[in-house]
Design a protein around this nucleic acid. Structure first.
Lengths: 236, 236
DNA sequence: CCCGGATAGATCGTATACGATCTTCACCAC
DNA sequence: GTGGTGAAGATCGTATACGATCTATCCGGG
């Protein structure tokens, strides 16, 4: 009792459990691309690496399984979720719908400062077009859309969007890095979206433009990867 | 080896782990309403009830937490997730968007038989309007929409819809049971949706009608529960 | 009467242990 | 060479044990 301070490091930040630490560690590793899709996750190894027993690691993996980031088979083990082209397509289409709606639901709440910040980021993206680095470009792209979403009137929609992006993991950048020319198109569409929001277009129109922006990225990717395959997705 | 058959009960159905059993048990109990929102989930008690130790129960609860059905606080315990009015509103709006899109993405693949089956269910709902039982009505409503979704070209969208409904748990029926007159309106809108699909309207039109169908339910609920509060949700 | 502090009980968090299951690979019959 | 068989090793699944933390209750001081 004497002079116990327990060094709370940060007031209001209770020490997180080991299972939480494992959860975040694995999640970050997947997002960073250190753990490629299909990579096997051995409980014991992860436990050893994080200096804990397997029980918290199991919990973490169960959570990640529920979120769709890893697959888990009884008596076989866990693997980083594979995202094949079909799943990628479906996730991206879902995202186009969710992001379109989220953008519309945020449009009326965006301030002049928000719009300028978004425009600044887009300008930076334009500058980088010549010396193209997929990773840096993708980061800016995330920031751009993050600003547009931030004031979304529906926080649950944001959660859904973020969860879906987490599922796609390190594939974030593939859409830009694999499809030449798409980046230039993308920043043009960004300008269009900003103009639409600034001029107070109807929410339905904003939703459509934002949706098509993401859908176009998906189309470009699909056409680039599978020039022969028909896009079995209804024009939407 | 002799004559070991291991009685595989069902070929292709491997014995499920205890954690899976716990997961399903809790999930069903929540969906059935046996475990009300806010109800405390004591690991030891559940473990005793299911005749297992706490470890699998913890895993199950972590999964349910990731799915949003349960909240979990370190050193405090788990509770069935509370869905306050704000969250309910946000989830329902998200659902209106997801379901609208899912309906449109399924429209072109629906067969004549599908449409007739949906119509039959809706007719049954109309019959039940006089002798209204929220639970039975809700079941039929689920079946109706399940048929419309079943052929959705995007399975991921269906997963998102189902996950969101699971989050709302036993509140499924509140939308009908609490808002007098909404049921009658709802079945009329069902007929509209069917007509739209049958006559080959553009997907965008189908999406809008399906979205408004769900959004109208939400509005009715909000107006009924909070006649004074402004609906802070953009008309969409 | 109200309030701060101590104590007991309940519950959570994780390590360890051990049986169950799967995977691998060497080996042998054909 | 091919395919089946068996054993060894790796890994998973869960029970048990015990320390850590929270909650509720009781008590003495103000």
């Amino acid at each position: 009792m004497t002079s116990e301070v327990t060094t709370p490091t940060e007031p209001g930040q209770t020490a997180q459990s080991k299972s939480q630490r494992a959860h975040e560690w694995i999640k970050e590793r997947i997002a960073a691309g250190d753990l490629a899709p299909g990579h096997r996750l051995v409980l014991g190894s992860i436990a050893a690496e994080l200096d804990m027993s397997v029980v918290p690691v199991r919990e973490a993996i169960r959570q990640l399984e529920a979120a769709g980031l890893v697959t888990f088979e009884r008596n076989v083990g866990a693997h980083v979720a594979m995202v094949d082209d079909a799943q990628y397509r479906f996730s991206m289409q879902s995202l186009s719908i969710l992001e379109g709606a989220a953008t519309a639901l945020a449009a009326r709440a965006l301030t002049t400062e928000d719009l300028r910040a978004a425009r600044d980021i887009n300008d930076e993206m334009i500058k980088q077009l010549d010396d193209f680095d997929p990773r840096a470009f993708t980061t800016l792209n995330q920031q751009f859309h993050a600003i547009l979403f931030a004031r979304c009137a529906n926080p649950r929609m944001l959660e859904l969007v973020n969860a879906e992006w987490a599922r796609l993991g390190h594939l974030r950048e593939s859409t830009f890095s694999f499809v030449p020319g798409r980046a230039a198109e993308s920043v043009r569409e960004h300008e269009e979206i900003l103009a639409c929001i600034a001029s107070g277009e109807p929410l339905g129109a904003i939703e459509q433009i934002a949706r098509r922006h993401r859908a176009a990225t998906l189309d470009a990717y699909m056409i680039h990867e599978h020039p022969d395959a028909a896009l079995n997705m209804p024009a939407f």
